[in-house]
Amino acid sequence: MLGYIVRRLLSTIPVLGVVALIVFLLLHFAPGDPAAIMAGDSATPAQLAEIRQRLGLDKPVFVQFFYWLDQLRQGNFGTSLHSNKPVAEMIAARVGPTLSLAVTTMTFSILVAIPLGVYAAWARGRLSDRLVMTLAVLGFSTPVFVTGYMLIYLLSLKAGWFPVQGFASLASDPIRFARTITLPTLALSTVYIALIARISRSSVLEILGEDFIRTARAKGVPERSVFLRHALRNAAVPIITVIGSGAAFLIGGVVVAESVFNIPGLGRLVVESVLARDYPLIQSLILLLSVIYIGINLVIDLLYTLFDPRIRY
């Protein structure tokens, strides 16, 4: 087990390396000379050369890449071209809202989607099953911003239950936090719920065809138990896999949802940095979000053994 964890951790290193290389090259070939941007319009060629040398821009690409990696290792993510603040500081200031939104969305989605999927599997072929599954397809066909604005229209503008936009942190104002986080959570959850519910239904159905289910039924295990103990437990691996791969939708969704609901999180920072062409900031944000995504899937891989004792490495 420990050996597996170590091997799995090591296996993320090449992926991280490739991601870092992609992100580096992406920005390396971006138009515009970072030195010229930093120096301003009135810089002399000598000043430019000095900045280039200081940033290592006069070195070969390959050397620059490893220099950049080394800087990252030391926790130096560079300086924003726009605000001149350290990128790490700007990102740290935005983590809170995004983290809250991600946690509420994940929790809510899992709590709703798995029972929904198991129910649909139980009601297989009936009208309620088809309804749930059609809604699920509708769920991941509707972009977050359309769902978001529908919710704002119905629950904020018409019903007046929630503020239209904005955010307050849990620590500063728990009630306002709950009121502001509800709609973005609902909007983000639809896609996620749809994905998880669909996979829950189909994996439970697949397990229901196994011999041990017939055995369980034959020995008189109550149907409830057949579904929850025997089928769902064995269907756990595909379900948690999709929770992991769905995190990509969640991260993409956060970018959009934060714009819709005016939440000052990382997603908004991504859009702001792109509109401002703040390359060091963009670079760090893509890298950070990718590392988070890789991390989530790493944790999920490790969870497999917990949910399915048959898996031994």
Binding site: V15, V18, A248, I251, V255, V256, I286, S290, I294
Partner: peptide, 9 residues
Amino acid sequence: GIMSIPSIV
């Protein structure tokens, strides 16, 4: 590597 970067991002 490409698939590890969330697609919208």
